[in-house]
């Protein structure tokens, strides 16, 4: 081969390499371009605020929320030494404890009975999922009347049996439970819909084969339904849990954190500190705690869940 041919070949190779690199750069640019709107919005309304919240938690602020004096960990020390915030944490965890298992168990029950092939089942399914379309504000209004000390249906129902009226929203012993009860009702629609979807995606051959083997209803429930549903359950538990920590609307509408701060869940506490008392520093510190809790829970869930969940 003579020199000219070699150089022609290496020229071609150079050209190809150059074009390859050019195309790769173009691909990256194109990808970024499609993702850019999302990234920009995430940055402005999610990543930046998160960082800013952490930043603010180390400062005292003026009434409009601008940082004034750096105080280090003082805000954290302050909230953790104040009984109010500790109480709010306790309330939040109790609220989670009341609402999450309650929501899951009831929704699962509803999903299982609504998964049967019966005439008119669609009506029941629609009813069960209906609370998904009812906003927090409207649901709170409905429940506020149900909880009404004299006219409310709950107390009227109790009086039929000669029981004493309960101050559902005014008695510190009952208030959190009442808010939880209404929350479970609000959650059912979405949770039910997802669980029903999960049930319907289970292959019917599995049940038919179990029927041939003569398995009973509860045996099938335990050995087929629950294991096959575990990815769905896992998802639903995670979502319900995270939602529970972020509860605000029903508390604001039903009890305003009262009575005696018994329903002062963490988001309500943040809201009150920041937007009623203008204590942006301590509010931010609380927000950081909330973020840490949710981050921790999500990670823990993934770690624990991944092992037990049965993926198809």
């Amino acid at each position: 081969m003579n020199g000219a041919a070699v150089s022609v070949q290496s020229d071609a190779a150079d050209l190809i390499e150059k074009e390859k690199r050019k195309r790769r750069t173009k691909n990256v640019l194109k990808g970024i371009l499609f993702l850019l709107p999302s990234i920009v919005f995430f940055s402005i309304f999610l990543f930046y605020p998160m960082i800013r919240t952490v930043y603010l938690s180390f400062f005292l602020t003026n009434a409009s929320g601008a940082p004034t004096v750096f105080v280090g960990m003082d805000n954290f020390i302050q909230i953790f030494s104040a009984p109010l915030f500790l109480n709010s944490l306790k309330t939040t965890f109790l609220f989670v404890l009341y609402t999450v298992p309650g929501t899951i168990v009831i929704s699962l029950f509803l999903a299982v009975i609504a998964n049967e092939k019966l005439r008119g089942i669609g009506v029941f399914r629609t009813i069960f999922s209906s609370t998904m379309g009812i906003s927090v504000a409207a649901a709170s209004v409905f429940w506020m009347f149900l909880f009404h000390p004299t006219m409310g249906w709950l107390n009227q129902f109790l009086s039929i049996f000669g029981m004493e009226a309960i101050g559902w929203l005014t008695d510190p012993k009952w208030a959190l439970l009442s808010v939880s009860l209404s929350t479970i009702w609000m959650n059912i629609g979405f949770t039910f819909l997802i669980l029903l979807g999960g049930l319907q995606s289970i292959d019917s051959y599995l049940y038919e084969s179990a029927d041939i083997d003569g398995a009973g209803y509860f045996y099938k429930l335990r050995r087929i339904t629950v294991p096959m549903l575990s990815p769905t359950l896992f998802f639903v538990v995670t979502v319900t849990l995270i939602n529970a920590f972020q509860t605000f609307g029903q508390v604001d509408m039903l009890t305003r954190g009262g009575p005696q701060n018994e329903t002062n869940v963490i988001v309500y506490s943040i809201y009150r500190d920041a937007f009623v008392n203008y204590q942006y520093g301590t509010a931010s510190a609380q927000a950081v705690i909330l973020f840490a809790i949710i981050l921790g829970l999500t990670l823990l869930q993934f770690k624990l869940g991944e092992r037990k969940v049965h993926y198809q």
């Binding site: 999302s38 402005i44 605020p49 409009s64 920041a274 509010a283 973020f291």
Partner: peptide, 20 residues
């Protein structure tokens, strides 16, 4: 990065968002 956004609760970043 997109998955990570699922772990940031909007409620926890509400203060700076309001200011923005």
């Amino acid at each position: 990065l997109f998955i990570a956004t699922m772990m940031i609760p909007f409620e926890a970043s509400i203060i700076p968002n309001f200011q923005t």
